[in-house]
Amino acid sequence: MAEDCDNLSIQRLVDEHLDAVYRYAYRLTGTVQDAEDLTQQVFLLAQQRLEQLRQAQRARGWLFAILRNLFLKSIERPQPVAATSLGMNLETVAAVTEPGAAVDAAVLQAAIDELPPEFRIVVVMFYYEDCSYREIAEKLALPIGTVMSRLARAKGHLRARLWKTDAALGTGKAVAGAIERALGG
């Protein structure tokens, strides 16, 4: 049975979800200071709107939604993303590194920071919040095709930065060939 929120205090939300909210904020903003500021804004707003939270089990998702909204509002005059800025080269997207390769934390954050905010939030929701592409589309009010496209481009960008997958073009072409066979081309 769902636990109601009659006894849910802001302090309890802090105790249970502060770390998760901070990590989310850090992945989006890329700096400790900005992440801390954003985290504080999230909980300050949560404190004002605590009556909106109906079930304690949904607290994390509710806090994440506040965080996303604050982040999106904080982006001043978002610049349209040129199609070429993250041009999804088929080979780049398709090529992946060998399993087991280590992820360098600093390189990962630098790669995330390079993404335009519209792409960054999609890929953070996918990897950190474990949202499906449908959930991302619903929560951001975006067409599903847009989400899938941004996700593929952003993931390809992260892989390219993390593992220099451009060097593995052969793999990408082989995969492209396999897809064409599947499509009957």
Binding site: T97, G100, A102, V103, L108, Y127, L162
Partner: peptide, 9 residues
Amino acid sequence: TDAAIKAAF
């Protein structure tokens, strides 16, 4: 690869 990136996130 996704599993490795997800853990790092």
